Lab assay of single mutants.
Amino acid sequence: WVQCTKPECRKWRQLTKEIQLTPQIAKTYRCGMKPNTAIKPETSDHCSLPED
């Protein structure tokens, strides 16, 4: 599990088994990010989705 770092969101998201949760990902994670590439989402507001 990882928490969105966006102050107005802070929702918890479940990561897939393939993703290694590192301190860097935990510090920078935003809803919809692909942690294995550290690319921020380009599409709609993933923070608007219900918490996992």
Rank of each mutant, 00 (worst) to 15 (best):
W1S: 13
W1E: 06
V2Y: 02
V2P: 00
V2E: 00
V2S: 00
Q3S: 00
C4L: 05
C4A: 05
C4S: 01
T5Q: 00
T5W: 00
T5S: 04
T5M: 08
K6S: 07
K6Q: 10
K6V: 13
K6Y: 09
K6P: 03
P7K: 08
P7L: 04
P7M: 07
P7F: 01
E8Y: 00
E8G: 15
E8W: 01
E8F: 06
C9S: 03
C9T: 01
C9F: 01
C9D: 07
C9N: 02
C9G: 01
R10L: 07
R10Y: 06
R10F: 01
R10E: 07
K11A: 07
K11E: 09
W12Y: 01
W12D: 01
W12N: 00
R13Y: 04
R13S: 14
R13P: 03
R13F: 05
R13K: 13
Q14D: 00
Q14A: 04
Q14M: 08
Q14R: 07
Q14L: 10
L15N: 04
L15R: 02
T16I: 03
T16F: 08
K17V: 03
K17E: 12
K17C: 14
K17S: 15
E18V: 01
E18K: 00
E18T: 11
E18M: 06
I19L: 09
I19Q: 15
I19H: 06
I19M: 11
Q20A: 09
Q20Y: 02
L21I: 03
L21T: 01
T22R: 02
T22M: 02
T22V: 02
T22L: 03
P23T: 03
P23R: 01
P23Q: 07
Q24L: 14
Q24I: 03
I25S: 04
I25G: 06
I25W: 10
I25L: 12
A26L: 11
A26W: 06
K27T: 07
T28I: 12
T28D: 11
T28S: 08
Y29I: 08
Y29C: 12
Y29Q: 04
Y29P: 01
R30F: 06
R30Y: 15
R30M: 12
C31Y: 01
G32R: 03
G32P: 07
G32N: 04
G32W: 01
G32I: 00
M33V: 04
M33C: 07
M33F: 11
K34V: 15
K34P: 12
K34C: 09
K34R: 15
P35D: 13
P35M: 15
P35H: 07
P35N: 05
N36A: 09
N36T: 10
N36C: 06
N36Q: 11
N36V: 08
N36R: 07
N36M: 10
A38P: 13
A38L: 11
A38E: 14
I39C: 15
I39F: 15
I39N: 08
K40Y: 10
K40R: 12
K40G: 14
P41Q: 07
P41A: 11
E42H: 11
E42W: 11
T43H: 05
T43C: 07
T43L: 10
S44L: 10
D45C: 07
D45A: 11
H46S: 12
H46G: 12
H46E: 15
H46C: 13
C47V: 14
S48R: 12
S48W: 08
S48G: 14
S48A: 13
S48H: 13
L49S: 11
P50T: 08
P50E: 06
P50N: 07
E51W: 05
E51V: 11
